[in-house]
Simulated scan of single mutants.
Amino acid sequence: MYSEALNDSISLEITLPKQLKNNTNTEYPIIYLLDKQLQSNYKYNLYTIDYLSTLQWMPEAIIVGITFSWKNRNSWTNPNINGGQADDLIQFIEQELNNELKKKYPISDFNLLIGHSRTAIFSSYALSKSPDFFNGAIANSVSNFDFGDKLQQAQFEDFLNKIPSSSHNYYYYFSVGEESYGDLHESAVDTLNMYLTSKALPDNLEWKYFKHKVAHDLTPGVTVNKALSEIFKNYGRRIDICFDLAKESRNKVPWEEFEDLYSSISSDLGLKIQPSELFFNSIASEYYNDYDNIYGNNNLNFTLEILLKAVEKDPKNFSYYSWIGEIYMTQKKIDKGNQYLNKAI
């Protein structure tokens, strides 16, 4: 894709969620994987995201791999005021690329950067420069972001002062190997960690420092999975929380509490999260099986209530109709049972 901002062409690879064609009402987060040319780390990141989203610990995402050739890697990761084009690259991602993605795919406003070394520095700078667009960065072996550059220090402090007024959380996860294992960035990243540890930080900034006993090139492989798991932890455990909410409400289905939970997760991420097939099947199973006899004679009625709501959300899912028909048959409501079983067929 040619960029007017950079006055250069950029090599991109876009990986789409498996369910994109089926989930027409879903808006997907975007994850920018920088340094696509480093295939071992790039493929690892793809597999990690696929693993976490397949197990529904994180939402499925649209993944944009961006190649940094050796001729532009330094210039694209240095701020314009220092003679680079990092600000132009931010403009490309935020405006030119985002507009193209909007034309083709149902995208959300959640944008996460993942970078390593030079592109980790860029990720940190981009997050601090444009917090209205970027939600977070995973900066592996982030190197020179130790505030030796007064401009970047001032930029990051401005970011910390600005984000408390935002309604959602920001995520900054960074890592380094150890110098004794060949990562010469250790002292610089220690400086960043000491800086953040010494400050009173905004409540809506989630951050963590990972130090690994590995070489510089291995830091993405031991950081990205942990960082993504942390960023999406409340999304990942949402069903377990819903189980607890159901158990605390023996006499009715706690729809308001379920909605509040999903609304809270959406607000934290700045990304609309809705109950999905996993929610409806899991909570319906909780009521249907009722292993601990919590719901008594209400268990089948509660199951029906969940499944009838599921049908409203997904009227083409035959398994819901089959299950509803089975329950009506169990309740001796033969006409209704036949009605839903025939719909399933």
Rank of each mutant, 00 (worst) to 15 (best):
Y171P: 02
Y171F: 15
F174I: 00
S175Y: 00
S175L: 01
E178T: 12
E178L: 07
E179V: 11
G182D: 04
D183R: 01
H185K: 06
T191F: 06
T191A: 12
T191I: 09
N193R: 11
L196K: 04
A200S: 15
L201M: 09
L201T: 09
D203C: 05
N204G: 10
L205E: 02
L205S: 03
E206L: 07
W207H: 12
K208W: 09
F210H: 08
K211Q: 15
K211C: 08
K211R: 14
H212G: 05
K213H: 14
K213R: 12
V214E: 10
V214G: 05
A215I: 13
D217P: 13
T219E: 03
T223C: 05
T223M: 01
V224Y: 00
N225C: 08
K226M: 09
A227S: 15
Y235K: 04
R238V: 04
I241A: 06
I241V: 13
I241Q: 07
C242Q: 00
F243A: 02
D244Y: 07
L245N: 02
L245R: 01
K247D: 10
R250T: 12
N251R: 10
N251I: 04
N251G: 09
N251T: 08
P254F: 02
E256C: 02
F258T: 00
F258Y: 09
F258K: 00
E259A: 10
Y262S: 03
S263V: 06
S264M: 11
I265L: 08
S266L: 13
S266C: 10
S266K: 07
D268A: 11
D268I: 09
D268E: 14
L269K: 04
G270D: 06
L271K: 02
